[in-house]
Design a protein around this nucleic acid. Structure first.
Length: 649
RNA sequence: GCUGCUGUAGCUCAGUGGUAGAGCGCGUCAUUGGUAAUGACGAGGUCGGGAGUUCAAUUCUCCCCAGCAGCACCA
């Protein structure tokens, strides 16, 4: 028998027969370790305790207690299997498919004629606990392909047969047995079902999901679950979800009276005075930043003849997402087909094309707060984050090939500065590279991708590469924000495009006196005001930075004899540009404080006779129970500073 | 778009085969109260829209619309 040498994390090596399993290795060290062991890490690879090791290797035995990542992966993966087993024990006709581990838990897709109900989830959960309590051993076997296919065909599991077909021929087919129930699975798994903590998982929801993610194929039922190492972690996670629900922009938008939406205009926002204040404040800020950044601002039509869209290629490639406006003779005595613009780029090229441009005009940075309409699929709509009518802080930089890197770097700096001002320091860049379906030569793609990567490096930012995710005409950078509860949102973008200038015949006169094509950089910093404001609301849980807060100060009278002074304070604040309002209602100060706190007003100034006599105010900041007496002059000066946008301080 | 669920007062929600209820909000009156809800009274609803079953539908069935979760989509 060949001997192999296994090296442990402490540096000690031991010799074993080839083909030894980590379970045997653990047992050779201590029986308690053999019991506690959940898996091994062999040469960096997560390894089932039952898989044989054939060659010298680094080995570490993992336990539930000491190895977080491995433990969670195994718990969640075993939960997926246990749930599938539970489902098939309750409803033997249900067909199983796949059940991977995801963030916080797992899901498993089933094919069943009847929908799973919330009550069913309870049943399944109960059955899962029974299975866990049985402490059924988990066994693994490697099967021949033909045997496995025959097995699944006999059992009426077509999805599994299809899965086997898609597994490369040289990969072993592993069958996992959890007691008498088995599943085709890559592994690894726990030693027995009892290693899953029975009180640290929860089934969360059922939803439809396409088989193999393909909308042309069967819709399956997906059950989602979350699982952790212990009850406390589960509880923490559920609390986090509750907190997240509280800062949902749709809920806060209503509570703070920012906007509403209604069925007559699905996916479009009715901005209320409060919400529009945030919007315009943000827009004013962006306008100043763009001016300072060397952009010229333009504005272009909403309704544009289909001819332009045919020329730009949108009519062909994007039509199902466009609002088409047909005018007919019956109501207008003439016929025309237009579309609401789904993007601004073709219109910007029209402006570029007016007059003759010289290389001296480049780079030409053109910006528009461009209102766009896109017919997004109904199921994609989500509050003000994914809408059908929105305004981009759009911009197109017309430049030469060798200006791409510099312009991109300048943009990254520009964006970085703005995100910082708006309170976001945690954001990432993704570089999407050439997709399979594309135009342009490989050399051009090489150059464009390199230009973007070089720009990121020059701006001092790391980036992640999304292979094949670029647009058909060029690579792009995506700037993704992480909000306070860890969700990612793509906001900013920069895309290189040599296609549209070609299609719309944009040109400039070069140094050589000849005509040349400019390249276009499509770029947006916020992305859209709608989405960005939604993110701002959630990031700050409604407590927007003072300069963006729709209602900044309420001056509340404690007794009506203070009313005149309250009005004087309000006027003094308004005079320095602070959004202040008086609350002279016949209500107790407790009531007023509560109401304005709930309404997320950042500053409440309470004023009674004491303040009137001393010409002071009693300042209370949102989220802070303490109050502070300040002179009128002092508070006016402080709030004046705070109300000033960051770029003007 | 697909699967499932939901739609009752401005908001959050209860309820019923015999045309509806709470709390908050709103209005009126009393109360002038010192930092998260003063009290009393009152107004307010074609029970998302349409059709069907029924003596009778907000309630049951079907269709449509919108929302929610997820999937697909986001060149």
């Amino acid at each position: 028998m060949t001997q192999i040498s296994l090296t442990f994390p402490d540096g000690n090596a031991r010799s074993y027969d080839a083909g030894v399993t980590p379970a045997e290795v653990a047992a050779s060290i201590a029986s308690s370790l053999a019991k506690k062991a959940i898996s091994a890490t062999v040469d960096g690879q997560h390894w089932d305790l039952a898989w044989p090791i054939e060659a010298d290797a680094q080995i570490a035995i993992n336990t539930l207690k000491d190895n977080d990542a491995e433990a969670l992966e195994l718990i969640r993966h075993d939960c997926a299997h246990i749930m599938a087993r539970a489902v098939q024990e309750i409803w033997p006709d249900v067909k199983v498919t796949i059940g991977p581990v995801i963030d916080h838990g797992w899901y498993y897709d089933f094919d069943r004629a009847e929908p799973f109900t919330p009550e069913d989830l309870g049943l399944i959960e109960k059955k899962m606990k029974e299975i866990i309590n049985k402490r059924d051993p988990v066994r693994t076997e490697v099967w021949d392909r033909d045997v496995a296919i025959k097995y699944y065909e006999d059992r009426g599991e077509p999805y599994k047969v299809e899965l086997i077909d898609s597994i490369p021929g040289n990969e072993p087919l592993r069958m996992y047995w959890h007691g008498e129930w088995q599943d085709l699975c890559r592994g690894p798994h726990l030693q027995h079902t009892g290693q899953v903590p029975a009180d640290a998982f929860k089934l969360m929801s059922v939803a439809g999901a396409y088989w193999r993610g393909d909308s042309d194929r069967a819709m399956l039922q997906r059950i989602y679950g979350v699982a952790f190492k212990n009850k406390e972690d589960l509880k923490k996670h559920l609390n986090m979800l509750e907190e997240a629900a509280k800062r949902d922009h749709r809920k806060l938008g209503n509570e703070m009276d920012l906007f509403h939406m209604q069925p007559e205009a699905p996916g479009q926002v009715f901005w209320h005075p409060n919400g529009w204040t945030v919007y315009t404040e943000l827009q004013d800020y962006m306008r100043r930043k763009q001016r300072a950044g060397g952009y010229v601002e333009v504005n272009t039509p909403q309704v544009v003849d289909r001819k332009l869209w045919e020329q730009s290629g949108h009519w062909d490639k994007y039509q199902e997402n466009m609002f088409i406006v047909e005018v007919d003779e019956e109501h207008a005595r003439e016929k025309a087909v237009n579309a609401l613009k789904p993007m601004n780029c073709p219109c910007h090229v029209q402006i570029f094309n007016q007059g003759m441009k010289s290389y001296r005009d480049l780079p030409l940075r053109m910006a528009e707060f461009g209102s766009c309409a896109r017919y997004e699929p109904s199921g994609a709509l989500h509050g003000i984050m994914r809408v059908r009518g929105f305004t981009q802080d759009d911009g197109h930089i017309f430049c030469t090939d060798d200006q791409i890197t510099a312009e991109t770097k300048t943009f990254i700096d520009f964006l970085s500065d703005i995100y910082g001002d708006l309170g976001f320091n945690d954001w990432t860049i993704k570089l999407s590279t050439r997709p399979e379906q594309r135009i342009g030569s490989d050399e051009t793609w090489d150059e464009m991708e390199k230009a973007l990567g070089d720009a990121c490096k020059a701006a001092g930012h790391d980036f992640e590469i999304l292979e094949g995710e670029g647009a058909f005409y060029g690579p792009k950078l995506e700037f993704t924000l992480t909000d306070a509860i860890g969700r990612n949102w793509q906001c900013g973008t920069l895309q290189v495009d040599a296609n549209l200038p070609e299609r719309l015949d944009a040109k400039f006169i070069g140094e050589d006196g000849g005509k040349h094509r400019p390249v276009m950089l499509h770029r947006a910093t916020l992305g859209s005001f709608e989405r960005f404001i939604g993110i701002l609301i959630e990031e700050h849980a409604g407590k927007l930075p003072f300069w963006l807060a729709p209602r900044q100060v309420v001056v509340a009278a404690i007794v009506s004899d203070a009313d005149d002074y309250v009005l004087e304070v309000v006027e003094a604040l308004k005079a320095v540009g602070v959004r202040a309002e008086a609350d002279l209602r016949n209500e107790k100060i407790n009531y007023k404080v509560r109401e304005h706190s709930v309404g997320k007003v950042p500053v409440i100034l309470a004023v009674g006779m004491k303040e009137v006599e001393q010409r002071t105010v009693s300042t209370r900041r949102l989220g802070n129970k303490q109050t502070q007496v300040q002179s009128l002059d002092e508070i006016v000066s402080i709030l004046h500073t705070e109300a000033t946008p960051p770029d003007m301080r």
